[in-house]
Simulated scan of single mutants.
Amino acid sequence: HAWWFGGGADLNPCIEYEEDTRHFHAEMKRACDPHGETLYRELKAWADDYFYIPHRKRARGVGGIFYDDRNTDDWQADFQLTRDVGSAFLPAYLPLVERHRQTEWSDADKDVQLRHRGLYAEYNLVYDRGTKFGLETGHDPDAVLMSLPPLAKWA
């Protein structure tokens, strides 16, 4: 193809809340619905597969949507999907921040957070196509790895 789009969003919670997961997925579905009644289901399945950590037998978070190499031969429609997904991020995420920003945290909560950060780092270093591509093609490693959390825990 001469062009393609990729995008999506996934929720990588430090602590999982069912209500947050429901809200996030509802906003992702709302972004996908104008582009076809089955698109959300397809992109959610792609995210579930893509963000899965086989050696842990679990996902790195609670999922979302994902697509790559999207070229339906309708540039305008593919671009609009990408815009709609991008525009859905703040309505999907900000209410979660507002809901929890005043929450008091315990040492046990901090441990859960660090373990989730570890899953994120582990996934990105072992499986993420963008991270692998950036490192294999000689890009600045600090720029490639800057999305990794400053602290994480594996055990």
Rank of each mutant, 00 (worst) to 15 (best):
D33P: 01
P34S: 05
P34Y: 02
P34L: 08
P34E: 03
H35C: 06
H35K: 10
H35R: 05
H35D: 12
G36P: 03
E37S: 15
T38I: 06
L39G: 08
R41Q: 12
R41Y: 11
E42M: 12
L43M: 09
L43W: 03
L43H: 07
A45M: 12
A45V: 13
A47F: 02
D48M: 15
D49W: 11
I53W: 07
I53E: 05
I53T: 07
I53R: 02
P54K: 11
R56I: 04
R56M: 10
K57V: 08
R58Y: 07
R58W: 10
R60H: 00
R60Y: 00
V62C: 03
G64N: 01
G64R: 01
Y67K: 05
D68A: 15
D68E: 14
R70F: 07
R70T: 10
R70E: 06
N71M: 08
T72L: 14
D73A: 06
D73R: 09
D74G: 01
Q76E: 11
Q76K: 10
D78W: 13
D78H: 15
F79S: 13
Q80L: 15
T82S: 12
R83T: 05
D84L: 12
D84M: 09
D84G: 11
V85W: 01
V85E: 02
A88H: 03
F89L: 07
L90H: 11
P91E: 02
P91C: 04
P91H: 04
A92E: 00
Y93Q: 03
L94W: 15
V97W: 10
R99Q: 09
H100A: 10
R101P: 03
R101I: 13
Q102W: 14
W105C: 09
S106C: 04
S106N: 03
S106M: 05
A108K: 05
A108P: 01
D109K: 04
D111Q: 13
D111Y: 12
V112G: 03
Q113I: 09
L114V: 05
L114K: 11
L114S: 05
R115D: 06
G118W: 05
L119E: 07
A121Y: 03
A121L: 08
E122I: 02
N124V: 04
V126D: 06
